[in-house]
Design a protein around this nucleic acid. Structure first.
Lengths: 221, 221
DNA sequence: TATTGTGAAAGGGTTCACAGCG
DNA sequence: CGCTGTGAACCCTTTCACAATA
């Protein structure tokens, strides 16, 4: 089951969110068209994405909102909880581990590490900042599966290596530096500088800046 | 000049960073191979990306580090400064506008807005948090060209609309919500939930999780 | 000999268009 | 008649492979 592209998965995540909203509003069924509407995607794309995992809809009717949401929840691996360690308790790290949506989505921050002695020992809510030197010991102990790298760029690779050594299977990197990890470790990168620079590029080279927007779905004719 | 793909631009941004590092280390020339090494890209990809903008290298020798860096700097629109407004002075907003790399890269945060009366008027460094109600007035006055949305999801679209109305040409969205903006406004989204969920997906469907890793470049044979 | 620049080939993702079904 | 599921067509991006050149 993994001829699934990165972009398909990201879209699933959006469909999931839309379904949560529609369900909260009391909607019972939804068509691929409506599911596509919010977010500049074509109905065909929605159907293709979903069909990679099964047949969840009913021809002529659309998809049952609650059912599809639960299916996506399972597909995305959100029907369980994940133990997360955040490394780096600077501004980004702090924003991250105090972010409510984290826990809400099933991601529990079970450890926060930093190298700065002034930060080590500080309590923030229920979490105490630990010395990063104890990562190798604490991460396996607390069954950490996902590591978030929120350190300065110079320390990022070293921290990633330590996380991998500690048995972490996925890394979310916020440091502005490309990381190298073994093939079996999943890696996602959020790079502010890249985002900002690609924005600057778009503004400088403005001609038809139609990023992230799509032409409206055309009906067959 | 815009048959340039989003992914090409993001890679340019990485090349630029690599060149900065290599230049700092005193390197004079660099081959597409070395430029590719850091970051799981093929040499051919590097050459194709660059060749979309001109011929910057010398056959047999490679690229002059300083020259190529300056060219990329101009291509990426980093040879000038950009006025940025951050909307939302919560944890994410605060992490953003106090982020040094921002200014270092040519992005000046000239305004920070929030809707919470307890935050309005607070000074953080050189910036005073303004009432978001004054966005329409202050953003054009301060020549804001890029807006950063760091609000709760419920307010994000409304804020984006206000930014667009105030003449902003690019938006960087951190709210977990797809935004709709006119085609001529560039939009980039950083969605933590999507990143985390795509990571969870990868771990659940582990088989061959070779995201962001590339097979090593093979020599012609 | 080393390495770029680039057409051509390959690969992958998106859209089309329609059969199948409610 | 409406809408899904999907093979085929299309299009865009990446990789190959080699002529050009230092």
């Amino acid at each position: 089951m993994s001829g699934i592209s990165e972009s398909t998965v990201r879209r699933l995540s959006h469909y999931y969110r839309t379904l949560e909203e529609v369900e909260a509003e009391g909607g019972r069924t939804i068509s691929s068209r409506r599911l596509a509407e919010r977010g500049g995607i074509t109905p065909a794309q929605v159907r293709k994405d979903l069909s990679a995992f099964g047949s969840f809809g009913r021809r002529g009717l659309g998809y049952n909102v609650g059912y599809l949401r639960r299916e996506l929840r399972a597909i995305l691996g959100l029907d369980r909880r994940w133990n997360v360690a955040v490394v780096g308790a600077g501004r980004v790290g702090t924003a991250l581990y105090s972010y409510q949506g984290f826990a809400q989505r099933g991601f529990d921050v079970v450890a926060v590490f930093d190298a700065d002695p002034r930060r080590i020992g500080q309590r923030h809510g229920t979490t105490t900042i630990e010395d990063v030197a104890r990562l190798a010991e604490l991460a396996p102990q607390r069954r950490v599966e996902i590591g978030v790298v929120a350190t300065p760029p110079g320390a990022a690779q070293e921290v990633a290596d330590a996380l991998v050594a500690a048995g972490v299977r996925g890394i979310l990197n916020f440091a502005p530096r490309k990381l190298t990890v073994p093939a079996q470790v999943a890696l996602r990168t959020v790079d502010m500088a890249v985002e900002l620079e690609s924005l600057a590029f778009a503004l400088v080279h403005e001609r038809r800046a139609r990023r992230q927007r799509r032409r409206p779905p055309r009906r067959a004719g």
